[in-house]
Amino acid sequence: MIPVVPAPSHPFRAAYDVERAVLSALRIVHVGQSSALLEAHRGPAAGPRAGVLVPVTWSDRGLAPGGFALTPHDGLRVRRLLLATDPGSALLDLSRWLDASGATPVDLRMAPLRIDPAATGRLALLLAGGEEPTGTDPALDARVQRALAPALADAVVQDQEARVHRLAQRLIGAGPGATPAGDDVLLGTLAALHAADRAGTATDRAHRGRAALVTVVTDGLARTTAASRHDLAAALGGSFAERAHRMTAAITDVHAVGPAYDDALGWGATSGVDFLHGLASTAQALLGHWQNRLPATA
């Protein structure tokens, strides 16, 4: 039985969302302070999983789709191991982690969630108050991508296919960061749409609009970075990182808004806040659509 991600989940335990076969031949892409990015071997004998990314995380990062989350202690140990390994030539077989670590498999699919107007309103206010420049140059300013989030959400909820295509294409791969800000906005948008869709609260229009968004993002995956492509591909399938789950709670519970915003500030340079903009805009659009619909259905 694979447990569905609790929200909020306990961040400090070993967990995984990866197939054993992927772990058998990995090369190091990057080793950071609280995560490492590994990639399935691309060599001549590589199988169909060649190039698949495996995010290994520890501390409060939580599990990422297709990844492995370690306890803080193991994380530091593994980090040292990775730093001492030649990233250019070494291939790592980490498949035994699944047996030795006591890790549990986790289903990272977004759960059905009921969007709360008060929580969504407070989140939107919080985001509006924190809009300061994110970079020293306009090219590095994530506000450009965040500003597109309400229009995209509106277009999706109203099933304006051409507008969805145009806006999503402006977001894919756009903006600062290793996962460009526009992609993080899209992740937040998809998270809200999945939550509403699974809860059965999305309208038929919104359902069709989401399908249009899925199509354009799927077609545009090659236009962004590998790390972002990995996250977006998982999101298209309905799976999100644990911290995305924690942040999505901000549109369902007014008490979760503050912690989610604090959590977002610690996610990359701008990624967490970018995600929240997509999430909040879409939640507002969905709520607005329901409210507009009420007189007609009463």
């Binding site: 892409v29 990057h30 950071g32 990015l37 994110t134 970079g135 020293t136 140059d137 090219a139 590095l140 791969g173 903006g175 600062p176 960061g177 290793a178 996962t179 460009p180 962004t224 970075t225 590998a226 790390a227 990359g268 340079a269 701008t270 990624s271």
Partner: peptide, 27 residues
Amino acid sequence: YRDSVTLMALAASAQKADGVVRVGAVM
């Protein structure tokens, strides 16, 4: 691959160099 905090810090440090008008550090 560098995380986004590193990319921002790189751009900020380059921006402070003498004579620099604009810096872009993006994927």
